[in-house]
Design a protein around this nucleic acid. Structure first.
Lengths: 229, 229
DNA sequence: TATCAATCGGAACGCCCTATCCGTTTTCGG
DNA sequence: CCGAAAACGGATAGGGCGTTCCGATTGATA
């Protein structure tokens, strides 16, 4: 990848502009990965060694930077579901996929946040999310047919798991980085067939989508306390 | 309750001061319950119909207001564990307690946040938290002895559940308020004996305590987006 | 009713955030 | 190598936050 970026009218960037663009994305990868999407644009500019105006010239809004930075993570997301579908063991593919994306959340706090939001303006970005989701639906079907996944498992349960794991990762990631493994293992065991009991109905897809919309960038990932000390 | 407040030197408050104190606590209950601890002090003052300075005279720091507002919720927390211990069915007591406190999280976003933080300055407050935790340890022991709770369940798993459920409640509470019920039901089923598989070790208590310290007030509960729109 | 301390409330402080303005510097084609 | 276009970056705007200051007001007392 790393295809050189261009202006909207097709002209290539000047050499210094292209260099800075790369630095900014690399810096944002580091900062968002460590601090979550709550990290400030100024901290990204500092890490990149560029002025704040340069950052905003390349990415007019924070959302644009986020979409650019996590494009390759979304690719990895799609790849992960593809590999899970290639697995000859439906249950192993299903659980392996869940563990893989939760590991991605643990490895990158920014991506953990990204997975629980939508960025309607970034269409290619959202298209990949939808693609992965379609693949996951197929994973569900196969895992149910194999008899290993409980029949009342709903696709919405993946969103719940991602939300919950984002919370666990943001909470414990710094002091007990592996906590998510135990948490995810527990949930996966509850997904296993046969069901140990009935479940309340899952939420409507629309409701979850609205909830994902509500949180634009700059929300999550428990920030530093403002007043504290 | 509602014992009239007094000055540090024992004098009673002037009538208007006492009236305002009550209004502030009632307003904070409303605002924190609806918006989480991320709600601003100014919004509490507005809801109470008092000036911002009046709020800070009664509660010198946000943490003090939080401790005052949620004192009765902490009492309810302790009461809930006591009632669970009175249950003749160890597993029913255990699961009932978990459902009860998760319901409290869903009913009050502020309390959902409170359960995942510590306020070392508010000693009586933290003493109640410790009291409830001790009771929960006894609930665990009994539920394991009855053979209904998996042997490798750890007390730390309660913290993980509270963190995860706080995330679910904050995420879906507005658009799909009952989502937490399904999520909690799933986790409870994974707690049930016999274990369906091994689990990674739980985090150290110290690590979780540090994580709870890290988040002072004014962190959580996905705020309104600053730049957005 | 007069007095004075207790209490009130809005303006202001200091810090952080996203985003923009504009004078300065750098790149690159002729 | 020079000049115009492109890109740079620090200062600034505009808003939100927790918290503090201080002149105006109000409740209790005599």
């Amino acid at each position: 990848m790393s295809s050189t970026a261009h202006h909207p009218d097709g002209q290539p960037l000047r050499s210094d502009a292209e260099r800075n663009r790369g630095r900014i994305i690399a810096a944002a990868r580091t900062v968002f990965g460590r601090d979550g999407l709550g990290a400030s644009m100024a901290s990204v500019a500092r890490e990149a060694g560029v002025g704040i105006a340069t950052l905003f010239r390349h990415f007019p809004a924070k959302e644009d930077l986020v979409a650019a930075v996590f494009a390759d993570r979304m690719d990895a997301y799609v790849t992960a579901v593809g590999e899970a579908l290639d697995d000859t063991d439906p249950w192993g593919g299903f659980t392996g996929f869940i563990e893989a994306i939760c590991a991605m959340q643990a490895a990158d706090r920014g991506f953990a946040d990204v997975l629980t939001m939508t960025f309607p303006a970034a269409e290619a970005f959202e298209a990949r999310r939808a693609e992965a989701y379609q693949g996951f639906l197929e994973l569900i079907t196969r895992a149910k047919r194999s008899g290993h996944l409980r029949d009342d498992f709903a696709s919405q349960d993946l969103i719940l798991l991602l939300i919950a794991n984002a919370g666990v990762v943001n909470f414990a990631g710094e002091f007990a980085p592996d906590t998510w493994r135990r948490f995810v293992a527990l949930l996966i065991q509850s997904f296993q067939a046969p069901a140990r009991g009935p479940l309340p109905d899952p939420p409507e897809d629309d409701a979850l989508y609205q909830a994902m919309r509500r949180a634009g960038p700059a929300g999550p990932s428990t920030q530093e306390r403002p007043g504290g000390d």
